[in-house]
Simulated scan of single mutants.
Amino acid sequence: MKLPPLIIGNLKATIPIIQGGMGVGISGHRLTQAVANEGGIGVISTVQIGYREPDFKINTKEANIRALRREIRKARKLSPKGIIGVNIMVAINDYDDMVKTSVEEKADIIISGAGLPLNLPKLVSGSDIKLAPIVSSGKAASIIIRNWIKKYAKMPDAIVVEGPEAGGHLGFHLEQLQEGKECLDNIVRDVIKVASSFEGGANIPIIAAGGIYTGQDIVKFLKLGADGVQMGTRFVATEECDAQMSFKRAYINSKKEDIKIIKSPVGLPGRAIRNEFIKKAEKNRIIPYKCYNCLKKCDPSKTPYCISEALINSVSGNIDEGLIFVGSNAYRIDKIVKVKELIKELVMEAENL
């Protein structure tokens, strides 16, 4: 099957692949521009993006905004014609400022989940930036569409549908994941049905995400009615990924039984490698020595560990003292390749079907 382009408004990605936004510097400008230059949509994650800044610990908000500006500008310089996106979690305290910074720096699209981005259209008023909420159910899609139509007379420019096989924080209750009844195929069908029930909603591009690994997977979801896919885990094991090599090797060295659902400090379930850090956190509380005031629902006096510190440790190479978020298929990765090679492989797998 020849892969069709992914068209979101006036944006046209020649390959229907969005690179998932992966926080704390995993998807920065290097990965983003590489994906954009190959015809996909490259995405910078805003979560603690300023962790390398010298004043990050004492001036976190300003460091993050400064770093986001720089990352978008660098990505744009290296991919002047590519599509540059930004992933912004609703759950972060500096959500509004990150959205406004993305608009000011003329990112092409904002992808937003970890909560319902109900006021997002208001924050980008007057700009042409595209908006793609992330949902994990038809119900969530319906709430967002109804809210946006009523308050802003606007529909989402695209909807990312994230299933239970994704890496990092998941939009499901722990019980749902343990029961194993949630299935991306069904959720995609449900969201397509919900979107189509609104006038003009059938034209909203639907993006399937979570556990998508091969060209065959891409074709499967296109045939289900999706317009494209979002992939995160596979892009970690690329030369251009902005994480340290030891972080990438943790993916390569992982086994299927190492990948577990954990409870995040913010109360959400997440998928990660059960390493020494997770084992230690399961036994005793790792008291944070500092609060970065990053997440709205985090109480530093009760949290089992500081998620910012844990993620910064892992992406910086200190993987035994850090949290390593992964998708369910991370154990299948056995080598590090260039983004160009990965996308070529995915396209060839799809076209050979």
Rank of each mutant, 00 (worst) to 15 (best):
I204L: 00
S196Y: 02
S136Q: 07
I206E: 05
K150G: 00
G115I: 06
P117G: 07
L131I: 11
L170R: 13
G163A: 03
F172V: 10
L177T: 13
G126A: 15
A132C: 12
R146N: 11
I204Y: 01
S125V: 10
K181S: 14
K193G: 05
K154L: 08
A202E: 09
D128E: 15
A202V: 01
E179G: 10
G138H: 04
R189G: 04
I149W: 00
P133T: 06
E199T: 03
A209E: 11
A209K: 12
V124K: 14
K154P: 06
I207F: 11
P121M: 08
D157A: 04
M155H: 01
S142V: 00
E182F: 01
A209H: 12
V191W: 05
G168R: 13
P205F: 04
G211W: 11
C183D: 15
V188M: 09
K139A: 13
I134D: 02
I206C: 04
I206G: 03
M155G: 02
V135W: 02
K139E: 14
I134L: 12
V191T: 08
A208N: 06
H173A: 14
V161W: 03
E179C: 11
A140Y: 08
H169N: 12
D185C: 11
L118N: 10
K139D: 11
Y152I: 08
G211M: 12
R146D: 09
K181T: 15
G126T: 12
S197Q: 06
N147C: 09
A158W: 01
E175C: 10
I207Y: 11
A166K: 10
A166D: 07
E162A: 01
V160G: 08
V124C: 15
S125R: 15
E199S: 05
E165Q: 13
E199D: 02
S137K: 12
L170A: 10
G211H: 13
Q176I: 10
I129Q: 10
G180V: 13
L118P: 05
K130N: 07
W148N: 03
